[in-house]
Simulated scan of single mutants.
Amino acid sequence: MAESSSGFTAMFEALVVDWLKEASISAVSRLMRLSWNAIDGIMQRAVKRGLARRTEISPRRIGVDETVFKTS
């Protein structure tokens, strides 16, 4: 089941996202016969879902590399 704002199934969107990992938006657009806007919507929903799954990380230790430290 896909999101209500999408006209595609979750499986189809997953397929498009997998193809986007391997090819350009133009190539996927031609292959799947989708408009650039449709692919952009799929990408935006995928990013939104991925960000929602993220958990906040609270590091206990932080390392600083002195070779990167630069004074102005």
Rank of each mutant, 00 (worst) to 15 (best):
G63Q: 06
L31I: 02
F12M: 06
L31T: 03
M32K: 12
G41W: 03
L51V: 02
S4C: 05
G7Y: 06
V64G: 02
K21H: 12
V17P: 03
G7M: 13
R45T: 07
K48V: 03
R45H: 03
N37P: 02
E3W: 04
A52Q: 11
F69A: 12
G7N: 04
K70Q: 14
M32F: 08
T71S: 14
G41L: 04
R49G: 02
R53K: 12
I42S: 01
K70Y: 10
P59M: 07
E22C: 05
P59I: 00
M11F: 05
S58Y: 08
S26H: 03
E13M: 10
S6A: 03
G50F: 07
S35K: 10
S5D: 11
A27R: 05
I62L: 15
V64I: 15
D18T: 04
N37S: 15
S4P: 09
K21M: 10
G7C: 06
L31V: 04
G63H: 11
I62A: 13
D18H: 12
V68D: 11
R61Y: 10
T9L: 10
R45S: 11
E22I: 06
S24H: 01
F69Y: 13
V68F: 08
S26F: 02
S72C: 02
R60I: 00
G41Q: 11
E56T: 05
S5C: 04
E13Q: 11
L15R: 14
I62V: 15
I39F: 11
R53E: 12
S35P: 07
A23I: 00
R60Y: 03
F69D: 11
L20Q: 06
F8L: 13
L34W: 09
L34D: 09
F69K: 13
E13R: 15
G41D: 11
I39V: 12
I39E: 04
F12A: 06
I57C: 05
S58L: 14
S5N: 06
M43H: 01
L20G: 00
A46T: 07
L20M: 13
K48W: 06
R60M: 03
E22K: 13
V28F: 00
S4K: 09
A27H: 11
T71D: 14
A10C: 07
A46Y: 09
R60V: 04
S35M: 06
R54E: 12
M1N: 05
V64H: 14
E22N: 06
A46K: 03
M11S: 12
P59K: 02
E13N: 10
F69W: 12
R61M: 10
V68H: 13
L51D: 09
S24T: 15
W36P: 03
N37M: 12
